[in-house]
């Protein structure tokens, strides 16, 4: 299986998104690099709206991901309540 990755600007919003990712993707590995946080996982990675909302303490819109996103790899599956990246191999 190939690894997917996603990176965010290292800031106060991303901190909660990353916490939500860690909660919902137990095998995810988080790398703190200068000014950015890069998360890797085998095969796929999911960001759930409800988990992020819970972490951040307010309603979080999946599409606001764009604001702090730096880069990602893999195919995307996006809906109202989740955002997922994956490889098919």
């Amino acid at each position: 299986m190939s690894r997917v990755q996603i990176a965010f600007q290292d800031n106060d919003e991303s901190r909660y998104i990353v916490a939500a990712i860690e909660q919902d993707n137990t095998t995810a590995v988080v790398h703190y690099e200068p000014a950015m946080i890069r998360v890797e996982n085998e095969g796929s990675l999911i960001i759930n709206r409800d988990t992020v909302s819970e972490q951040i303490g307010m309603e979080w819109d999946v599409q606001s991901l764009h604001i702090n996103l730096i880069t990602l790899t893999g195919h995307i599956d996006e809906d109202d309540d989740y955002f997922k990246i994956m490889w098919n191999n």
């Binding site: 000014a35 950015m36 764009h66 880069t71």
Partner: peptide, 26 residues
């Protein structure tokens, strides 16, 4: 990330801001 490491706040910010568009472009 290197720009940030070298104290260049302006460049890292436009760089990451551009790259967030790139994520969509990718």
């Amino acid at each position: 990330s290197g720009a940030a490491y070298n104290g260049d706040m302006a460049t890292v910010t436009f760089g990451f801001s551009a790259q967030s568009d790139e994520a969509r472009h990718m």
